[in-house]
């Protein structure tokens, strides 16, 4: 604004000021400046996707010992912020026994599906010795399933692979469930503190890659300590968890009735057992960082928040 124009504006203000004088203020001249700042939060969003036609959830009925279920769970970053870790836990277990004297015990939630389909199969109990000893203990049933975990990364070359739990570790779903830091707390589990501690020793002792252990949960994305760590958006990364669950085939233990060994396998007592497990996968953000011009593009979009470790 040049001086002439400024004075012209000043005169108008002065004329206006006369009426303000009557109102009791002498602040006739003023000047107003404004600043305007925009700030927007990003999104942190994990999506689970299946890799093949098997999907990523287990919905298997009519299992027998020796059966194996393998699911590839693909972790896709659907947000605008890099994901640091995906923490896996078994949050809770629902169990039902659908056969024998205590059949049909409180099937709930996902187990409704299992029980409705299996009721027809096990409408009447067969006339076998194990029926009187049919298992009603959820943990005993889960202990028949061996679990293995492998993370597969799409990092740079795409052949990154890390075995967290292998078959030879002999970790069962019971161990994994008791070791997991459930959102419902340890008290929600049908086990005491020392059993839970034993399970943690077994599971976390079996894992060679100690840096994947986060509290009482496991990080199931890649810990590569480079640009591909976790699930960054730049470079774009997808990781896959290969979760294998095997119904252990135990032909060594025989059913004992009245202290006499029968010719029926002990595992027969699990016939008609059903369980539903809730796995949770929690995506976490990277720590907050100091934002400077070097972190943003020309529109103020924080590009380094799309990268592993804040782009460091």
């Amino acid at each position: 604004m040049n001086l002439k124009k400024k004075i012209a504006v000043g005169s108008i203000t002065a004329a206006l000021g006369l009426s303000l004088v009557a109102g009791g203020t002498y602040a006739a001249f003023n000047d107003v400046e404004n600043t305007s700042a925009d700030f927007a939060a990003g999104t942190l969003e994990l999506d689970l996707q299946s890799v093949d036609e098997n999907g990523y959830e287990f919905q298997v009925l009519n299992l027998k010992p020796g059966d194996t279920m393998t699911r590839d769970i693909k972790f896709v970053n659907e947000g605008s912020l890099a994901i640091k870790e995906v923490l896996m836990a078994i949050e809770d277990v629902q169990f039902a026994n659908l056969i024998g004297p205590e059949a049909g015990a409180e099937a709930t939630g996902d187990l409704d599906i299992a029980s409705s389909e299996m009721d027809a199969q096990f409408f009447s109990a067969p006339d076998d010795a194990w029926v009187d000893q049919v298992n009603t203990d959820p943990l005993e049933y889960l202990d028949q399933f061996r679990v293995s975990l492998i993370t597969l990364g799409a990092e740079s070359g795409g052949d990154y692979q890390k075995e967290l739990l292998g078959d030879d570790d002999n970790v069962t779903l019971k161990d994994f469930y008791l070791a997991s830091d459930s959102v419902h707390g340890d008290s929600s589990k049908p086990a005491n503190a020392s059993e839970i501690a034993d399970a943690r020793n077994k599971v976390y002792g079996a894992i060679d890659e100690k840096n994947y252990i986060k509290g009482h949960r496991l990080n199931v994305t890649t810990e590569t300590n480079d640009d591909w760590e976790g699930l960054p958006l730049n470079p774009y990364d997808e990781d896959v968890l290969r979760l294998k669950i095997e119904f252990i085939d135990n032909t060594e233990d025989m059913l004992v009735v009245d202290d006499v060994e029968t010719d029926e396998y002990w595992q027969n007592i699990f016939q008609g057992n059903a369980a539903a497990l809730t796995f949770s996968f929690e995506a976490t953000q990277w720590d907050g960082q100091e934002i400077t011009d070097e972190d943003t593009d020309e529109n103020g979009y924080i590009e380094t928040n799309e990268e592993a470790n804040n782009g460091e």
């Binding site: 000047d31 925009d38 907050g288 103020g300 924080i302 928040n305």
Partner: peptide, 24 residues
């Protein structure tokens, strides 16, 4: 002339997008 000016060194006109908790 009464003229208040926001100095050129000011950065109060800013725009930030894609913030996460902890950022400062």
């Amino acid at each position: 002339v009464l003229d208040l000016e926001i100095g050129e060194e000011s950065t109060m006109d800013f725009s930030l997008d894609n913030l996460k908790p902890g950022d400062h």
